[in-house]
Nucleic acid binder design. Structure first.
Lengths: 316, 316
DNA sequence: GCTTGCTCTGAAATGCGTTTCACACTTTAC
DNA sequence: GTAAAGTGTGAAACGCATTTCAGAGCAAGC
C-alpha cells in the first residue's frame, strides 16, 4: 500500500512530482517519471480518493433523488443519467426517498457536506423554497417545469401534453374524460388539472383518480371507475403501467377497450406496444441525459423543455 | 462556513473537544458543549464529509454494480438494497455497467480507492477470479450461487427452481419444453441447462432462445419460436417481462396460451397477475435487503439461499 | 549579449476531522 | 486515608493528495 510520501521517498523526489506523474501533468523529466512509476508499482500504491476529494473540493459525483428506484418512469430517467455519467467519468449517488421529506433533506445535505458536486431531483415532496436554500452549495437540477434563477430544470410540458391528449379524445368524439394522477397536489397534477379546466371549465372530482402509479394502482382504479354511476368513457392515465392494470382489469370486468372505455397513457414504455396502448411518448432517457449535463454544467442556470409525441395505437 | 478549527478558536476549546461535541461523545462539560454548539451555529458550520471519510477510513457507502438500472429485475433488487441502506444510514453508489467489463472493473476499483466500504454485484460479466482480487479491500457480495470463502453471496437456487418449473410442465402433460435465457454463458443459464439436461438427457439447441431480457426480446423470441418446424408447446421464460412480450406476440400470431403454447415466467412481477402468467416468484426485494446486510456485515463470509415459489395462473 | 520564455523541481501551504495519549482533577471504594 | 475509577481537556499525530510559489537551468529570439 503506502502513500504518496512513501513513493516520493523511494523515488527520491518530492510529493509534488509524484502527484504530477500520477495525474499526467507535464513538466516532469522522463527519469523521475519512471522512478515514480516504479516506486508506485513496487508499493502496490492505490490512491485514497477521499484525500483527493478533500484536497480538490470536488468529488465528481452527482446525487440523484428519486422516490422509487424500481418504477419504470424513474428507472428510465436514471438509465439516462447513468449513461451520461459514465461518459463523463462521474459517479452517481442515489437516494430512494419514498417521497419522505426527511430523506429528501438528507439527500440534499450531501451537497452541503461536499459529498456530491450536484444533485438531480427527479421528483420531490418537500417545498421548492427549501430546495432553493441548497442551491448555493452546488448545481441542482429539477425534473419539473420551473423558471427560477437558482436551479436548472428539464421537463416535459405536462400542460401541453395533457391538452394534446384531451384534444385527441375530443377529435375521436369523446367529451367525458376522466384521468388519473399520482399525487393530487403534485406539480404535474396541477398542470394537468389546469389543462383540463381550460377545456371543460371545471373538473368532476369523481372523475379524477388519485394515487395511481403502478400496475396494481391501475387495477384498483379500474374497480373504482366501474363502480361509478356514470364512468367516463375516456381515461387519461398517469403512465402506461397504470394503463396496463386499468385496461386489463376493465376487460376482466367485462368492458371493452376502446368501445366502453378509451385509454391514453403516458411514457410509451415497452409495455404499451404489445398491448396496443395509445400513449404520449416522453423521452425519459433523454431527459435523464440532459439532467446530468445540466448538473455538471459550469454555465448558468438553464431550463430545457423536451418534446413529447402522441403515439396512436388501439386503445382509443 | 469555517471549519472545526474556527469553531475551536471561537469557543475557546481544542479541536478535539469540538469533535467530541459534534459527534456526541461523552466527557464534555455542559459549558464547553454549549460554547461549541454556539460557535458552530454562528459560523453556519457544515462538516466536510470528505475529511471525515479520509480520517475514518470509511465512507458508509456501498457500491452497487448492476448491468441495467431500468430493468425491473435489477430495479427490484436495487429497491431492496436502497431501503436497507436507508435504515442503516448508508449511502449507495450505483454503477450501470451494461455488462461491460471495463465498467465493472471501474466499479470494483471504488473499493481500492476507499470510495466505498463494500460492493454488491447484482450480475457480472468479468471472471470471478478478477472479482476475488478485490475482496481484500472490502466486502463483496455476489447475487449468484457461490461458495467461496472470500465473498458472501445471496441467491435463488436457479437449478432447483428450473427443475420445479420443468416438473410442473411435465405434470401438466408437457414433454417438449423450450426455454429462454439472457446470456447463454451466464451462471444462471448454466444452472438451467444442467437442470434441463438432467431431466431430458440433452438439449435441443433450437429450443433455447438467447438474449431474452426485455419485453421486446419476448416479442422477438415469439417470432423465432413460431418460425420453427416444431415449436415446443411449453416455454420457460427468463422473466415475466419477456413472457409478456412472448405471450402477446404469440396471440397476435394466432396461437393460444396455454393451448398452443404454455408459459412459465420468473419473478412474479406485478405484470404477471393481470396477464395471468404462471410464474416462479423470486423475492428480489428481500434478496436486495440481504445483500446489503451482508455487504456491511463485519462477520465472516456467508452464503444465503432464498426461497422461490411457483405461482399458478392461467398460462399453463 | 541580453532578454524572454520554457522546462523541471521541491518546499510548504491547503483542504479538514478524528483519535490517541498524557495529564489533571474529582469521585467512589474499602 | 489511600487507592482505584471515572470525568474532562488539549496537544499532537494521523489520514493523504493537490497546488501554488519561488527558483534554477537552459534554449530561443533579436
Amino acid at each position: 500500500m503506502g502513500n504518496i510520501h512513501d513513493i516520493a521517498r523511494i523515488a527520491g523526489v518530492s510529493t509534488a512530482t509524484v502527484s504530477r506523474v500520477l495525474n499526467n501533468h507535464p513538466y516532469v523529466s522522463d527519469g523521475k517519471r519512471l522512478a515514480v512509476l516504479n516506486a508506485a508499482e513496487q508499493l502496490h500504491y492505490e490512491k485514497n480518493i477521499n484525500a483527493v476529494h478533500l484536497s480538490r473540493g470536488k468529488t465528481e459525483t452527482i446525487g440523484v433523488i428519486l422516490p422509487f428506484v424500481n418504477h419504470p418512469y424513474f428507472g428510465t430517467i436514471l438509465n439516462g443519467i447513468a449513461s451520461a455519467a459514465e461518459k463523463s467519468g462521474f459517479k452517481l449517488m442515489i437516494v430512494q426517498t419514498n417521497y419522505d421529506i426527511a430523506q429528501e433533506i438528507d439527500a440534499l445535505n450531501m451537497l452541503k457536506l461536499k459529498q456530491v458536486d450536484g444533485i438531480i431531483i427527479t421528483s420531490r415532496e418537500c417545498p421548492i423554497e427549501l430546495v432553493e436554500d441548497y442551491s448555493a452549495y452546488g448545481n441542482i437540477v429539477l425534473c419539473e417545469a420551473s423558471s427560477g434563477e437558482q436551479m436548472s430544470s428539464v421537463f416535459v410540458n405536462q400542460y401541453e401534453a395533457f391538452k394534446e391528449a384531451i384534444s385527441f379524445f375530443i377529435e375521436r368524439g369523446h367529451s367525458k374524460i376522466g384521468y388519473t394522477v399520482f399525487r393530487l397536489d403534485g406539480k404535474s397534477s396541477q398542470a394537468r388539472k389546469k389543462a383540463y379546466e381550460e377545456t371543460f371549465g371545471h373538473v368532476q372530482d369523481k372523475w379524477i383518480f388519485d394515487q395511481a402509479l403502478t400496475i396494481e394502482d391501475g387495477t384498483r382504479v379500474a374497480g373504482e371507475w366501474a363502480a361509478l354511476d356514470d364512468p367516463p368513457p375516456a381515461m387519461l392515465i398517469t403512465n402506461d403501467f397504470v394503463a396496463v392494470g386499468f385496461i386489463l382489469e376493465c376487460k376482466r370486468l367485462g368492458f371493452n377497450v376502446p368501445e366502453d372505455v378509451a385509454v391514453v397513457g403516458f411514457d410509451n414504455h415497452a409495455i404499451a406496444a404489445p398491448l396496443g396502448i395509445t400513449t404520449i411518448e416522453l423521452p425519459l432517457k433523454q431527459l435523464g441525459i440532459i439532467a446530468f449535463q445540466l448538473a455538471i454544467s459550469e454555465d448558468t442556470v438553464s431550463h430545457r423543455e423536451i418534446a413529447y409525441k402522441l403515439i396512436e395505437r388501439d386503445s382509443v
